[in-house]
Design a protein around this nucleic acid. Structure first.
Lengths: 203, 203
DNA sequence: CCGTCAAGACCGACCAGTTGGTAGGAAATA
DNA sequence: TATTTCCTACCAACTGGTCGGTCTTGACGG
């Protein structure tokens, strides 16, 4: 079981994440974070070396949770079929369903938030966000490689670009759904990517 | 010709936009803006009622410029062909070319920046950003309606969702290109949408 | 079973610098 | 001269961050 320190640390990270997702990084003060997580200045700076250090740990935590989430969906897709194309289609479908089940509009992506305020963050955090995007590229591209090996592609697209498009559609969908306060938009955009893949690889 | 006041006003807006695009809204202080545009506090507050008022005028200016830009591309496409599908494809192609010609990575979208910090902005600005996204939806959807009227669609997608996808691909592409510092990514994503449209409407 | 003692966890007052914003007056312009 | 345009000086609130001290926990010896 986690120690007391680990629990408060986690509580700080959790409240900080939700605050930053809705107010931005510069728009969220340490005072706000400690106020909402019921800790004091001293307590905060005992656990983190500063605001940038907090950001670093936030991204790491975010990427870890994200990896678990995506891997779970892929594993579920593998259980359901052996065909690489169907696996990829099912993955996207499952992702869309998960996004549709959210109680309200998607809370936002930390990588996107930090990218749009990257000048406020040190090189350390910037590298982490880039690593995150690259890990998504790799994850999707690996599956798409299998699809390409099994099916002819009806347009000349690099697997990398096709993989990036899924990330882009997710990020774009999150942004639009937040801006318009329309929670259906994101899953619909994902199903649009789904349709693209079908057209691209099916006769 | 513009008066002295109009010129300084424009200079403030211009430097404020580039500062906010790279540092975020909360991450950009009024002191920074006045420092870089060579004016003083008093001068700034003579032209704008406050930071939020500046943001409001920034979005309005941004959307106006954007409309001119998009309309220009559509007019060019209309000159080149009468076929609605080809017009749309050419529009996307021209857009991709324009994005490819940028000297470095895309500077970022104000609507996106403000959406990710919407809690810092008053209802006024939030409405403007939403209006902007809706105007893009309408612009793209109008053209896509003509395409749908002339061609069968090989998947059941609403024109609105298809229009939103272009906005999403642009926003997602901007984000990824900034995060990875890769200027080629955005035009490539646009050509991906181009390929999708072709597959969707061509036999 | 209990005292003890160091390490871990946390507190809250304080600091210098920055924040958005104001007030009153001085140039510049028409 | 009247209006537009801009400047200087100032303010209260807040910013990220520091520091000395206090409480809590758990391992260990008696």
């Amino acid at each position: 079981m986690p120690t007391k320190g680990e629990r408060t640390r986690e509580s700080i990270l959790s409240t900080a994440e939700s605050l930053i997702l809705s107010n931005g990084y510069s728009g969220t003060s340490i005072d706000q974070i400690i106020g909402e997580s019921g800790i004091t200045k001293g307590g905060f700076f005992y656990h983190f070396d500063g605001k940038n250090d907090l950001a670093k740990h936030l991204v790491m935590r975010y990427l870890e949770q994200d990896e678990v989430f995506f891997n779970g969906l892929f594993e579920r897709a593998y259980e359901l079929t052996d065909d690489p194309l169907q696996q990829m289609l099912i993955f996207v479908k499952l992702l869309a369903e998960q996004m549709a089940e959210l109680p309200s509009t998607h809370p936002g992506c930390l990588v996107a938030t930090f990218t749009y305020e990257s000048n406020q963050l040190d090189e350390n955090v910037r590298e982490l966000t880039a690593d995150g995007v690259l890990s998504w590229r790799t994850l999707f591209a690996n599956q798409l490689e299998k699809v390409v090996a099994a099916y002819p592609m009806r347009a000349e697209q690099s697997v990398e670009t096709l993989a990036d498009m899924l990330t882009g559609v997710i990020e774009g969908g999150i942004l639009l759904s937040r801006c318009l306060e329309n929670k259906d938009l994101l899953p619909r955009q994902l199903m649009q990517y789904h349709a693209y893949l079908k057209l691209l690889f099916q006769a």
